[in-house]
Design a protein around this nucleic acid. Structure first.
Lengths: 159, 159, 159, 159
DNA sequence: TTTT
DNA sequence: TTTT
């Protein structure tokens, strides 16, 4: 995959409902999330505090969709990294409509920021998970770079 | 302004057309941009290279809108940092429609990545500009932190 | 403040220790955090799961430093948005040393992702807070844009 | 690769020198870049405009290192997405030192934002390139999701 | 020194 | 409708 340009979305928010799971013809899961972010500010005129919530449609593909299905619930807090995609669809009146989603696939990331959801989920987990960037058999692990010759890229030891 | 959650979009792309400038009742400019990002990949089945372009609607407010008006042109490459906002509007048939934009205001950023546009702009500039985060009279400059007492936050000298 | 280029760091991690608070000559607080992020992968050679933790030095200025002081504790999970800064300092041997920090000031953001810390903090809060981008008296609230003339920027109603 | 936490750096800046290429024992290239970002502000006290440049050490691994080697030159403008890593090394006096770099590997991205460099490079290219996230043989292309059954994930057509 |  |  090559890109010309950058198309990146980062969200931290809470699910407004349980994930909706659908399936591709291949059997792969697609998880659709509704994620809320909000901001509040003091109204200049009235002095009142106002708040606005933005709702984001997120579509998750691949293995991460399974994770979302298992562990995310209404109320769960998540970190999402994906890209914007606008899809065209047919309205009931036959007219074209457009909808914009945040797509999370192999090039994106999802991370649970709590272990709860609404707590009612028997499956509910305290597991932290990440979507994309898994490494297949032969691929080098990102943080396991061998040492360049004559150099100081030996084992990385932080502070 | 306080946030609950994070709602962030980062785009690097090219303008598909000159900015459209509108004005608020206050006289402040609003600049609307169409920005393209694209990705290409090799089709697994056919082996052909395929490409998809995503078009983003960006609405810029405040002083940055003036900069966009002056310096951006069809073809200009820009870095955009903003947030997602979905607005409701009335379709011609009286039905509700929704559209999602990337909003750039004081909390966002715009930066020109070339000095051209289409080059024909007399005003056209090689000027790099940033949208938000300007500092008013009394506000401390981000990189001008005074020294904490007994400490080493003196003048910052990079490598 | 104008920028040429982008210098942005985004961290989500946990504090390895309580924040260290220092004070500027002005009396303003500076909060220093140690934040851990980690990654794990399967070693190609041995098949074992390995893990590496990265520790980040974060320096928070301004009002957010006060929030960090009050609400963050060892173990707290936070979202940080800041910029890289490398400072020079004198080693004990009189030699120059350099250290790189993530600086969070008015142009950055901090958000607590849990309400705890170690729980022992009487002050401990469930409060979600954000560092920068506060609006002074006359500044327009980001999400409160007035309506452009002849246009559809009325009140924003999400899905 | 699994993550706990997020460790992300985004830079847009210019190279202060040609890339330095080194080689791993495997023969793979590692490209080291010095990238400048800068900010300017008006000094509150003196009213003068001040500027500060931050220099970032970037280490690029994998195929992207080859691209950097071929196409980047002193002065080139690039977009970098990577992660922070602090390495320990031995000072000449035998003491431990630490240095922090931005690492770009398969999980990161590099994109050239101009086609120049200093122009002197015979190899110099107008080619836009991206580092990570390449897809191996069997991996699904990010934007080529098949249609979920009974659903509307057909071919994506933007505005 | 965190977290799971 | 951009760009390479």
């Amino acid at each position: 995959m090559a890109q010309r340009g950058i198309n990146k979305v980062i969200l931290v928010g809470n699910l407004g409902a349980n994930p909706e799971i659908r399936h591709m013809p291949s059997g792969d899961a697609v998880a659709n999330l509704r994620i809320a972010t909000s901001e509040s500010w003091r109204d200049r005129a009235t002095g009142e505090t106002r708040e606005r919530t933005e709702w984001h449609n997120v579509a998750i593909f691949g293995k991460v969709a399974e994770v979302a299905k298992q562990y995310l619930r209404k109320g769960s807090k998540v970190y999402i990294e994906g890209r914007l995609r606008t899809r065209k669809f047919q309205g009931k009146d036959g007219q074209d409509r457009y909808t914009t989603e945040v797509v999370v696939d192999i090039s994106g990331t999802m991370q649970m920021l709590d272990g709860s959801g609404d707590g009612q989920a028997g499956a509910g987990g305290r597991q932290s998970t990440q979507a994309g960037r898994s490494h297949g058999g032969g691929a080098p692990a990102p943080s396991n770079h061998p040492t360049p010759s004559g150099a100081d890229y030996d084992d990385d030891i932080p502070f």
